[in-house]
């Protein structure tokens, strides 16, 4: 019998390190679901940050927009 570790591997990738041993009782498909959720949260966060920065510019006084953009790395 072979044990699938695709879910564990995916979660390790998203966690950027080994999956905590405390999660050993979980089936691999559960680990895969957690990996998907974390990946989606990361993607959402990146989008939010980008959109927030763009939106923020509307509120920044014209004078400060250049330095503000540079600080954001945009």
């Amino acid at each position: 019998m072979t044990t699938t570790t695709a879910g564990r591997d995916a979660l390790a990738t998203e966690l950027e390190g080994p999956v905590p041993e405390a999660l050993d009782p979980l089936a691999d498909e559960r680990l895969a679901e957690l990996a998907d959720l974390l990946a989606a949260a990361k993607a959402r966060q990146a989008e939010d940050l980008a959109a927030g920065a763009e939106e923020a510019l509307r509120f920044v006084p014209r004078l400060l927009r250049g330095p503000f953009r540079r600080a954001l790395g945009a």
Partner: peptide, 23 residues
């Protein structure tokens, strides 16, 4: 671990946003 990775993932952008806010 998720908190760590979510904040690490954005850390460079976050630092940029923080220094922008400081202006």
């Amino acid at each position: 671990r998720c908190v760590e990775v979510l904040f690490d993932a954005g850390s460079e952008r976050l630092r940029g946003a923080a220094s922008a806010a400081a202006l």
